[in-house]
Amino acid sequence: MKKIIFALLSILPVIAADAQSIYITKTGSVTFHSRSTVEKVEAENNEVSSVLNTQNGEMVFAILLKSFHFDRALMEEHFNENYVESNKFPKSTFKGKITNLADINLTRDGTYTTSVEGDMNLHGITKRIKTMGSLTIKSGKVQVNATFTIKLADFNITIPALVEDKISEQIDITVDCRYDKKN
């Protein structure tokens, strides 16, 4: 009996350390825009969920595509109906890792450059993404920023010939998430 109690007691710090290092947000922001001169295609999603484990640098994002909002209602409809097909593929996800965790001092406030690598899933296709970003620590809160570019063709999203000059093949994505410690 004593032994079992000893065993249980010894793992307690492990659990505690894990819970300590989990940061979560449900109101992260992801915006994208297409680099075309003819028409501005831009959308914002302020309901991005993400969890970050500062102990091992792992991070995951889940994005409901229907929560992307555009200036033009018709663009939003076409985005959902014709491009990302959000009824078939409602979510986009990213599972990745901060690869230079050793350079980040989590106990001290400041902004650190991070390099992130992981798998992005969109439109039913998973692709490896590598990007640089920043991680800011301020009074116990963590903020993550990143900008990267994806190619629509990589995710099997096709642009019809008729609007080819209006929509760019390259899409810039900006991530801005502020995390709170999970209780």
Partner: peptide, 9 residues
């Protein structure tokens, strides 16, 4: 982590 996210959502 993903499951945690789902639960929260």
């Amino acid at each position: 982590l993903m499951n945690l996210l789902e639960e929260e959502k």
